[in-house]
Amino acid sequence: MGFSMTISDTWHRLPRPVRIVLARLPLLVPQMLGVIFVTFILVRLLPGDPVLLMLGNMATEESIATLREQLGLDGSIWSQFLVYFQNLIQGDLGVSMFTSNPVIKDLLERAPATLELITYAMILTLLIAVPTAIYATVRPKSIVDRASRVYGLAAGSLPDFWVALLLIFIFFTTFGIAVAPFGRIDPMLSAPEFVTGFYTLDALLAGDLQAFLSAGSRLLLPVITLAIVNSGALMKMTSSAFGEIWHSDFIQHQRASGVPERKIIRAALRNSLPPLITLTGFLFGFLLGAAVLVETIFSWGGLGQYAVMAVINSDYPALQGFVLVAAAFILIVYLIVDVLYEIVDPRIEV
């Protein structure tokens, strides 16, 4: 009794954000285990024998049996899972049949490419959508308000590859302002040393200004493309969330109390954060795979392209690796969403 009281006391004395993180973090373990198990099962469920697929038509009985044994496919499903899991923990995701590289090596190269692209795209999306929506709500019937309505309508119906091609046509082909849409960095330069995998950050860390500028300018068009396409949805969401708060009683009351408009806007924004956080998290996870067309157009060499190639070539280890990385990424994004959501809303008990 006394012991549990002490625990409960200590718990409540912790700062609220710490309590939120501590309460949410352990859930990650069973979630990740679940994901690992499901990817394993899904791949087993695929039609066809992977051994036959790998060895082709010329396989002999012995070679099939040998490979089975090598791959651990002769045991029960549980022992197979155990082998798979042990390999996974050691960072062994198998060898891609298509690139002949270890899957982990491919992923480590490609995941940061996509992550860098969609992180900047997400930041730009937020920078476009949120201020525009706020301005449009605070100054209704202004030009910004009208323009944002038209844009909100149009942006949802614009295909990203079309926007990408349009931007390339205008800024690269016609005016020659933008750099060529081929990859993440000028082929004449060498990629900065791997630290985070983000070329922009790594170049800065290495003090390589030229690489930084090259990587940055390569990012420009694809990031703008993704932001143009996705900020429409976020803008609408912000408008509705912020608009509802903006017309609520407590905002009226702050105005009646003579609080300056600037502070009122800040208070209203603070109150409309929860739905924004949720949608931002969702968009972030969605972009991981959805950016594939843009990646292809800009020869980005990202994760989406890798997954498409894996599917086309029946490259199961690569596909399995992609699903795992994507799932882990989404789990982490949602973890951050949950934590932020609880931090910004003090009404949620922890």
């Binding site: 009351h253 009646a256 109390s257 609080v259 603070r270 109150n271």
Partner: peptide
């Protein structure tokens, strides 16, 4: 004038307060 010379107290106080700000802060802000 609002709040400084003439202040208004409305109905349903709970709806008049910012739900995500400590009340002391809110009064201090005014």
């Amino acid at each position: 004038l609002r709040g400084g010379v003439v202040s208004l107290i409305g109905t349903n106080a709970k709806a008049l307060l910012d739900p995500v700000q400590p009340v002391g802060e809110q009064v201090a802000t005014v």
